[in-house]
Design a protein around this nucleic acid. Structure first.
Lengths: 184, 184
DNA sequence: GCAAATTAATGATTTATTCAAG
DNA sequence: CTTGAATAAATCATTAATTTGC
């Protein structure tokens, strides 16, 4: 990778005496982009990118791809930032998505038996009830489909076992999937 | 105060007792769950849930229902995510055709005339956003009220380069968002 | 005060996923 | 099972900030 370490990247069209190695947004440009982001825009469509770009070109040289990149990066980094804050919290996606009437009714979802959720099923039920009345129970078939294992092994080099792994809490790149699946 | 999700932080799966509001997976737990998901497991059977739970309990406090929920949520969200994608993509390859000044390689894929704003992906985008007029601005009066802090604000003074716009008058504190979005 | 050296941000690329079509 | 579409994550690379010596 990084083939070609050539440095200069074509001066390009920046006639304004600015080196155009890479886009350097003006404050106004960043401001607008940020506003759009705050407004919820995350992945603008091609059309939107075009329009945004056109609009921003008023403030300075810019290309569509810059807009695209900006959103990609900003989105990713905002998330990254958030992730740093809450250690593991993988579920910090729209936590407020309760607005939807059809949430998981886990109650009658798939669980054939009843003891699966050993405890605190009450809580869950309560919540559930609050959000929506459990009126109808759909018949859901538990189609397990364990699917294939170990077909995804690619570059797994680590051969660490569970034990060693957890105590430290260290994060490794690719824990051996095979081993991890072994308990199933 | 941005509502939604006070950062719980800490506690981790260590079982530090505190804050038993909801399961807070450790990185190891998420890792394994994710691996299982990647391996193709989508709807684990009761038995599998039990085993997975047991296995994960080694890394921290967890219950069967957590596993069940995790798969439900993860599966659903992955799907939703892919469904709402909007599309933009351009050939961002290393071709570096510097010979041509502007290369808008936007591969006009622009297909799904759906929600271009894929708001429900990860971060908690304000709901107001969804009200956003995506294609045409009929009346952008989305009252966004961001409330968050701008991290971009840099007191940078030299706005040299491209636009001489910002000079003075143009630099307002809150340019009406509505207006700014009007071009979309 | 300035400019080289160092560090922090962030623009641009590459890589690895996921789901869906065929 | 293979390929296409489209990211998001990880990474590379360059520019702006900041520090430091003079």
């Amino acid at each position: 990778m990084s083939s070609g370490g050539f440095s200069i990247k074509a001066v390009g069209g920046g006639g304004t005496g600015t080196k155009c190695g890479r886009w350097n947004p003006t404050v106004e440009q960043v401001k607008l982009l940020t506003d759009l982001f705050k407004a919820g825009l995350r992945t603008p469509s091609t059309d939107q990118i075009q329009k945004i770009s056109t609009e921003l070109s008023f403030y300075g040289k810019i290309e569509s791809k810059n807009v695209f990149y900006w959103f990609q990066n900003h989105k990713a980094r905002e998330r990254q930032k958030r992730r740093k804050i809450s250690t593991v919290d993988f579920d910090h996606r729209q936590d407020t998505d309760l607005s939807r009437p059809h949430r998981n009714n886990l109650r009658h979802r798939q669980a054939p038996p009843k003891d699966i959720f050993d405890v605190s099923e009450e809580e869950k039920v309560i919540e559930t009830l609050q959000l929506f009345p459990l009126s109808k129970v759909e018949r859901v078939r538990a189609n397990v489909t364990v699917a294939s294992h170990k077909e995804y092994i690619r570059e797994q080099a680590n051969t660490t076992a569970f034990s060693t792994y957890s105590s430290c809490g260290a994060e490794m790149e690719h824990p051996p999937l095979d081993l991890r699946l072994s308990f199933l």
